[in-house]
Design a protein around this nucleic acid. Sequence first.
RNA 1: GGAGGGUUGCCAGAGUGGUAAUGGAGCGGCUUGCUAAGCCGUGACGAUGAAUAGUCGUCCACAGGUUCAAAUCCUGUACCCUCCGCCA
Length: 417
Amino acid sequence: MLSLDYIRNNKDKVIEAAKNKGREIDLNKIIALDDQRRKLIQQTQILREERNKAGKSKPSPQVIERGKKIKEELKKLEDQLVICNQQLNNLLSYVPNVPLPEVPIGKDASENKEIKKWGDLPKFDFKPKSHIELGEKLDLIDLERGAKVSGFRGYFLKNQLATLHFALLFYVFNKLVKKGYTPLIAPAVIKGFAHFGCGQFPWSEQDVYKLNDDDAYLAGTAEQSVTPYYSGEILNEKDLPKKFVAFSPCFRKEAGAYGKDTKGLYRLHEFWKIEQVIIAKNDIEEARKLHEELQKNCEEILEDLKLPYRVLLMCTGDMGEPQIKKYDTETWMPSREAYGETMSNSIMGDFQTRRLKIKYRKKDNSTEYCFSLNNTALASPRILIAILENYQQKDGSISIPKVLVQLIGFKEIILKK
RNA sequence: GGAGGGUUGCCAGAGUGGUAAUGGAGCGGCUUGCUAAGCCGUGACGAUGAAUAGUCGUCCACAGGUUCAAAUCCUGUACCCUCCGCCA
């Protein structure tokens, strides 16, 4: 959410940003509604002031008569104000955030900028298999029974791969805990306000699972439960930034992705993630530094795992509505003969914290909305694609990344007779 | 699932129809002068304003209702606590 003051003072910027993000907004309508809202507020305040003054002592019959009149007039104005606020908030909730100047302007993924590449692509002196083939041969992934039991995009991870999955999650979780991030096991069942606060609603409602008739939804990422952790609170400046590493199950309907990535472990309804979330001061330079820190963390993880990756600076057309700057980190996946997205690192400015009412008290005693940031640390099973395919051997076995061997207790996955 | 109790500012806590006591913390200021103490100020949000000035309004979990007037009375909802039942 942008503030009305900001919108009024930066009309052209906001219009330009929405255009670059491919979103339609009607700022003139928003400003007209805000004018109307202010007028109604002023009118109600005058009447309330009169009522309050009359209420200071026992009223005379004339004052009671006048009071009845005020009550009627107020009721009319307040009803108008409710409608006005509803319309205004509805339009306002669709206004996307304004990207930073260094963000390239572009229509879609083709205009993202590659800014880094790491690691040598594996050279196989045999025909490499996809993770699906490897998973079937070594009895590590059961997609058929997954679909039978869970439905489309369902899966079982099995045998050594199930153990590897846990080891990866733990390795990454622990790595960030050691860096001073506060560990959290975060809920996956969350209320609507959390989705709205993070900017998932109103734009991506079709991608979220709703539970029965309650105010209960499944989270698509721990960002949606951890960012609202401090909602409605005022934090102390000296306690910022708050850095979290959170584990949670993640659920996505993938409603807009029918027919895309329908095979294997790439696009799933249910997966697990270690997420980094930061609540920081309202300071863009500090936010840029923290953004780089989050980026370094996820790159270190891929380097520990010795997986080749590249980093993209996302263009305006391929970033989400709340974001002002975003890096995607993509990991090499031999069967795709391409890098596939495994991490996504964003600065949100005060867009989410304004919706969630997360503020902090500054040294001069005034309050200010915080900034929020988040980046994936590890998403599994997707990352398993890269591990299985990059670590496959000529004899059909799969070696294990060194950093995990101690944790997991075996060095390779081999075909069982 | 059943029974009862509760929700007031950063915290504690008074307040049963006339518009939020009091104590403490933190922060700021002043004074004294040194293992610290005392005094003063300080809730959030909104309208108006150049203003972090003043004035006014709103906020006692949330949403409605009754009333000239609601923290206070009524209804609904959420959450917390205690006990019983069930349970990984």
